[in-house]
Amino acid sequence: MARPDADSFAREWVAAWNDHDLDAVLSHYADGVVFHSPRIALVMGTDEDFLTGKAGLRKYWQAAMAGASDLYFELEDVLTGSDAITLLYTNHRGQNAAETFIFDEDGEICIAVATYG
């Protein structure tokens, strides 16, 4: 597994979200990514709490961004592991959030888990 530089990754990831640049956000993810979030069911109107594949992630985030024109993340901290990075941030709803990313051998996110306080 190849983990990118945590601080550089965090700055790029947050900047892409704050710019509402979905292509830039998705550039960090592997085609077969598995993404877990309790917000998937709410945004997509399903019972699913995870999705697989970059195409599904794009569809979910397009829907989420359409409903959040004020979307903005304020980075609070960056935590690192052997093959993972966790970003702690505050979102536009004032929620504390954490996303943990596990990277594949190409340095792309293969598993991501979003949690909210």
Results as ranks from 00 to 15, higher is better:
His92Ser: 13
Gly81Pro: 07
Ala6Thr: 00
Gly117Val: 10
Ala41Asn: 09
Glu48Thr: 12
Met65Asn: 06
Asp77Arg: 04
Glu48Leu: 14
Asp104Glu: 04
Thr86Asn: 02
Phe9Cys: 01
Met65Leu: 06
His92Asn: 05
Phe9Leu: 01
Thr46Lys: 15
Gly94Met: 02
Asp77Ser: 14
Thr100Ser: 11
Leu57Ala: 02
Leu75Lys: 07
Thr115Lys: 10
Leu57Gln: 07
Ser27Asn: 14
Val34Pro: 04
Gly67Ser: 06
Ala30Ser: 09
Leu42Phe: 15
Ala30Val: 01
Gly32Lys: 02
Ala112Tyr: 00
Val25Asp: 01
Asn91Glu: 08
Ser8Pro: 10
Leu88Gly: 07
Val33Trp: 02
Ala98Lys: 05
Asp70Glu: 13
Asp5Pro: 12
Ala84Asp: 11
Ile111Trp: 08
Ala15Glu: 10
Gly53Ile: 09
Val14Cys: 12
Ala15Gln: 04
His28Asn: 10
Ala6Leu: 04
Glu48Ile: 15
Glu108Ala: 12
Gly107Tyr: 00
Pro38Ala: 12
Glu105Gly: 08
Gly107Asp: 03
Ser69Leu: 08
Arg3Gly: 06
Ile40Tyr: 01
Ile102Met: 15
Ile85Tyr: 00
Leu71Gly: 07
Glu99Gln: 13
Val113Asn: 06
Asp106Met: 02
Gly81Arg: 08
Leu71Pro: 07
Leu88Pro: 02
Arg39Gln: 12
Ala10Ile: 11
Met1Glu: 12
Ser8His: 08
Tyr72His: 12
Ile109Glu: 10
Ala6Arg: 01
Ala98Thr: 02
Val43His: 06
Ala97Glu: 04
His92Phe: 11
Asp104Tyr: 00
Ile111Lys: 14
Asp49Met: 14
Ala64Lys: 15
Asp21Thr: 01
Thr80Lys: 00
Asp77Gly: 05
Ala2Asn: 15
Val14Thr: 14
His28Trp: 09
Tyr72Lys: 14
Tyr29Arg: 07
Val33His: 03
Asp49Lys: 13
Gly67Trp: 02
Tyr116Val: 04
Phe73Ser: 02
Leu26Met: 03
Thr52Asn: 00
Glu12Trp: 02
Thr100Lys: 07
Ser82Pro: 14
Met44Ser: 11
Val43Lys: 03
Pro38Ser: 14
Gly81Leu: 03
Met65Phe: 10
Glu76Cys: 09
Ala24Glu: 11
Arg93His: 13
Thr86Trp: 05
Leu22His: 08
Gly32Thr: 06
Glu105Pro: 05
Ala16Cys: 10
Asp7Ile: 12
Arg58Cys: 04
Ala64Asn: 12
Ser8Ala: 13
Ile40Lys: 05
Ala66His: 12
Val113Trp: 05
Thr115Ala: 09
Gly56Lys: 11
Gly56Leu: 03
Glu108Thr: 15
Ser8Leu: 08
Phe35Asn: 04
Leu79Cys: 08
Thr80Ser: 00
Leu87Gly: 01
Ser37Ala: 03
Ser37Thr: 11
Asp70Ile: 01
Leu51Ser: 10
Arg58Gly: 05
Trp61Ser: 03
Thr46Glu: 11
Asp23His: 03
Leu51His: 08
Ser82Arg: 14
Asn96Trp: 09
Ala24Arg: 08
Phe73Cys: 05
Leu87Ser: 02
Gly81Glu: 10
Tyr72Gln: 13
Val14Phe: 06
Gly117Ile: 05
Tyr89Gly: 06
Pro4Tyr: 06
Gly94Arg: 06
Phe101Cys: 09
Ile40Trp: 00
Leu26Phe: 01
Phe50Gly: 07
Ala55Leu: 13
Tyr60Glu: 01
His36Val: 14
